[in-house]
């Protein structure tokens, strides 16, 4: 069963002079086990969309269903793990342990079960157990982000919803968190991420939703996204697209430096072969 949004619209400060329309007429379907990237410019409505998934905001028109459930139901909330843009906004306990255990305890799991989940989640975000007794607010930004992710993972959600999960992390931290997300996805959880970090995320994404001024400008597979000529693209993919447009026979669906290198070298040898055979004639 998927998350389904039908004809969803949302405005902030409804019926006041400050009314602003954030989303208009959104139709979207996210299946379990998908890795979805939500892209778009600042103020496009990306974060608003995420808040509709777990009932933090209710649509003005249209419906949002999680596995057929209303988003305000407790069960729907358990199925969706949410990590916000500012990790500090969602931390409130006195120790990292309490923070991560809060979700499982809140949903009625036993202390023992909660502890198991805390340790499992902590390991998944590459933090060691000495962290458990620290105050989450004494942690660095990157560590806070990991704790926030761990507390979402401790619920073993079916859908993991993330708003810019790797900003503020250094390259090693980014890589670790991306690996965790990939693992979570491989275990069958849908990962839905708002991100501007195309370099890191693009190799992992399967589906892309591009939002422009509150409307869906594109939704579909990554491969189709590349064919449409949409932007943004990671720098490497932009380069390959440019090469193709300039007449080099490269495959533009390349997302890593390694693949780009192989593709450029392959094209070089093709061109060299052609030119030697031409001079041979």
């Amino acid at each position: 069963m998927p998350i389904i949004l039908e004809n969803v619209s949302f405005s902030y400060s409804k019926k006041t002079p400050l009314e602003t329309s954030a989303l208009r007429n959104i139709n979207l379907r996210i299946e379990k086990g998908e890795f979805v990237g939500i892209l778009g410019e600042k103020g496009a409505g990306k974060s608003t969309l995420l808040k509709l998934f777990n009932g933090l905001l209710n649509p003005e028109t249209g419906t949002v269903r999680v596995d057929g459930l209303n988003t305000s139901s407790r069960e729907a909330k358990r199925r969706i793990g949410m990590v916000f843009q500012q990790a500090a906004d969602q931390l409130f306990c006195r120790t990292v342990y309490d923070e991560i255990a809060f979700g499982p305890l809140n949903f009625g799991y036993s202390r023992k079960e909660a502890e198991e989940r805390v340790l499992e989640a902590l390991e998944a975000v590459y933090l060691d157990q000495t962290m458990l007794h620290r105050n989450p607010f004494s942690l660095s930004g990157g560590e806070m982000q990991r704790v926030a992710l761990a507390s979402a993972l401790a619920l073993r959600p079916d859908y993991l919803v993330l708003d810019e999960p790797i900003t503020g992390l250094d390259p090693v931290g980014k890589k670790e968190i991306l690996e965790t997300l990939k693992k979570v996805k491989d275990e069958g959880t849908a990962v839905i991420a708002v991100t501007h970090n195309l370099k890191g995320f693009f190799p992992l994404l399967e589906k892309i939703v591009l939002i422009r001024e509150g409307k869906i400008a594109f939704q579909g597979t990554k491969e189709d996204y590349l064919k449409t000529g949409c932007v943004p693209l990671p720098p490497i993919t932009s380069l390959m697209r440019e090469l193709k447009e300039r007449g080099l026979p490269v495959n533009p669906a390349v997302f890593t430096v390694e693949d780009a290198l192989q593709e450029i070298l392959r094209v070089r040898s093709v061109i060299e072969k052609e030119s030697t055979s031409n001079t041979g004639k």
């Binding site: 932009s238 380069l239 440019e242 007449g247 080099l248 094209v267 070089r268 061109i271």
Partner: peptide, 13 residues
């Protein structure tokens, strides 16, 4: 990406 592609095309073509 633009200037990079330009350079590769010049080299290869």
């Amino acid at each position: 990406p633009h200037s990079f592609a330009e350079e590769i095309c010049q080299l290869f073509l």
